[in-house]
């Protein structure tokens, strides 16, 4: 970061001479340093997956959440600063609830995404605030079908067939690009996601957990965590695949 020490990075309301807002960039960096999270849009729904490093042997398994329900038809996987992520998730839940009570129908994915993006963007506008150091993979299922969005600290939001954030994002994206996402079912994608996360997991030897959710016909078009047995199968398949490729090497 060329901004460091130049004084142009003290507030989100100051541009650097070459047109950057360093505070926003730093927030993005917090996301980039996160452990890897990915989202896949399949033909029947969305799968969200995230690798979670086990920071201590004393940590209770599956105790810190990275994937949250926003409403029955929407969920978010957060990356970056997790407390910031929680704020974003709570805001999303609030938006969903308000929309439902005002219009009597579930908030459409596109609207939820736009509102979240606007919310995140707000924190890039005032000297007294810091942009959220978090990005959210948003999975929704509305009357137009399933959709995957990524909302970033700058307030940028895009709709994806598949994407990843965090340390190994580039490697994951390379893997995703090789896949035929339009033909994949969520059940298959769960296995693929497990394989990818095991493959790109950098700190070999360091233990990690996989947290995964889906919203598809199998889940009744409701966002929920992937059932434990389905996830266990996927992880077993992923480990087997890893060992196989090790043997080849």
């Amino acid at each position: 970061m060329s901004g460091i020490g130049t004084g142009y990075d003290l507030s989100a309301t100051t541009y650097s001479p070459d047109g950057k807002v360093f505070q926003t960039d730093y927030a993005q960096k917090a996301v980039d340093n996160s452990s890897t999270a990915l989202g896949i849009k399949c033909k029947d729904g969305i799968v969200l997956a995230v690798e979670k490093l086990v920071v201590s042997k004393l940590l209770v398994e599956r105790s810190s959440r990275r994937i949250h329900n926003v409403d029955r038809h929407a969920g978010i996987c957060v990356a970056g600063l997790l407390p910031d992520g929680r704020m974003v998730v709570n805001r999303a839940a609030e938006e969903a609830s308000n929309y439902k009570s005002f219009y009597g129908e579930p908030i459409p994915g596109r609207v939820l995404c736009e509102r979240l993006a606007s919310y995140m963007h707000l924190f890039n506008l005032y000297w007294s605030m810091r942009p959220y150091g978090t990005a959210g993979l948003l999975a929704t299922y509305d009357e137009d079908g399933p959709a995957l969005y990524l909302v970033e600290p700058s307030g940028v939001a895009h709709k994806y067939h598949g994407t990843a954030v965090g340390k190994a994002r580039q490697a994951v994206k390379n893997e995703l690009e090789k896949m035929k996402l339009g033909q994949l079912t969520c059940r298959e994608a769960v296995v693929e996601a497990a394989k990818i996360l095991h493959k790109v997991h950098e700190e070999d030897g360091k233990p990690f957990e996989i947290e995964m959710s889906w919203i598809c016909d199998d889940s009744g078009r409701v966002h929920q965590r992937v059932p434990a047995e389905v996830l266990a199968e996927a992880e077993a398949a992923a480990k087997a695949a890893m060992e196989e490729s090790d043997m080849e090497d």
Binding site: F102, Y103, G104, E105, P108, R110, V111, E114, E143
Partner: peptide, 21 residues
């Protein structure tokens, strides 16, 4: 306003819901 935000037609049920509110 809703139609503009959603960028598509609003369902009849939603319109009825608004009137009910």
């Amino acid at each position: 306003q809703l139609q503009a935000e959603r960028g598509g037609p609003v369902r009849v049920e939603t319109a009825a819901m608004m009137a009910m509110q």
